[in-house]
Amino acid sequence: MNLKDIALILFAFFIQAVFSSLPFGLIVLFVLLVIKKDPYIFVAAFIFGILLDIFLLRIIGSTAVFYMAFLFFVNLYEKKIESENVFFVVVFTFLGSLLYFSLFNFQLIIVQSIFSAIFAGVLFKLLNQKTKKRRGYLR
């Protein structure tokens, strides 16, 4: 995990804590996990979840547990199916968001989950392209 990833996670945290009900943190962490497969994403999920719970006045630890459990579940599927494709990202973000919105009592859960999935798809395309380009230059 580099400095750019940390900046992206921090930006997602502020958006989610102040402006939007969409789970930007979950989306960013999930996309980074799919592309980079770095175990430190769990550390970021833990810190992100605790901070979000403090600011949104939830039971401290609840978001962290949900984020980590979801990311671990995704990680289990990594070997069974080809995880590094946009359909995997879109489908899992939709399901993850749906669960998140239902657990934390949000409204318009289907519409919000669809938007989350679209955003995750776009973010994945952008970040994956950059990573592929970098890998190409290295070769």
């Binding site: 999920a45 833990f46 605790i50 401290i60 609840s62 962290a64």
Partner: peptide, 18 residues
Amino acid sequence: SVFIVFLILALIFYLLSK
């Protein structure tokens, strides 16, 4: 191992928040 360690930590925070 990272998942288990931080999941336990999160659960401790969850219990302590009460």
